[in-house]
């Protein structure tokens, strides 16, 4: 495993830790999109179907379990926890996330590495992950006061995607047979979705003012 990949996984993990910190410790999910969290739970469920079939490494298995457990528990907290769910900004989190699922499934049926159940589900999870951040970005635009933890959560998620691209570039030159076009193209699309957010995040950090996205 190269340094970019490890750093990418760690920022991904950090984003989850930041979000759990906000939800578990501060008992607030203000500014967090439940739609995005539900999509992530679906992404991990679809992608890690081979969890108990293909063993890659202890690291791999543990990380997969962490992402599965954390994504489902975040959804649980936001829907069921009696204090946390009251802080959910339902009125502004209106993105029709169900309409993202079907096109991603259709695309996975058309474009996959092999037409088997697991490969189609893998491609589906890749496509869905690429667009899963959209409800969250829309909610951020509608949020007047974006708190630091929410901003950091999205920033770490975006950093994870950037680092994964660097990881692919590295792997392309060091492992000649390692090419997953599906994850590369979807991953680049996913990263571009963060470009706008990154711009405003870095500007707010540089100018030492509160993060706010223009509507």
């Amino acid at each position: 495993m190269n340094a970019f990949r490890l750093a990418g996984d760690m920022t991904h993990l950090l984003s989850v830790v930041v979000l759990l910190l906000k939800i578990h410790t501060i008992k607030s999910c203000a500014g967090i999109s439940l739609k995005t969290q539900e999509l992530y739970a679906l992404v991990f469920a679809a992608r890690y179907l081979d969890l108990f079939i293909h063993f890659i490494s202890l690291y791999n298995t543990v990380m997969k379990l962490v992402f599965l457990a954390s994504s489902f528990s975040i959804v649980w907290y936001m829907r069921r926890h009696k204090i946390v769910r009251r802080t959910y900004d339902k009125d502004h989190d209106t993105f029709r996330h169900h309409f993202l699922v079907l096109p991603c499934l259709a695309l996975a049926l058309l474009i996959n590495e092999r037409f088997t159940f697991r490969e189609v589900m893998w491609a589906f999870s890749i496509y869905l992950e690429a667009v899963a951040i959209l409800p969250q970005l829309v909610l951020l635009q509608r949020t007047r006061n974006i708190d630091n933890l929410t901003g950091q959560y999205v920033f770490f998620l975006g950093a994870y995607r950037v680092l994964y691209i660097l990881n692919w570039i590295y792997r392309y030159f060091t492992e000649p047979h390692f090419v997953h076009w599906i994850s590369w193209v979807a991953g680049i699309v996913q990263t571009l979705l963060y470009a706008d957010f990154f711009y405003y995040y870095i500007m707010s950090w540089k100018n030492n003012v509160k993060l706010e996205l223009p509507a």
Binding site: H12, I56, N60, Y164
Partner: peptide
Amino acid sequence: TASLPAKDEL
């Protein structure tokens, strides 16, 4: 069929 590259990423 040729084997696919390993899916070892998260």
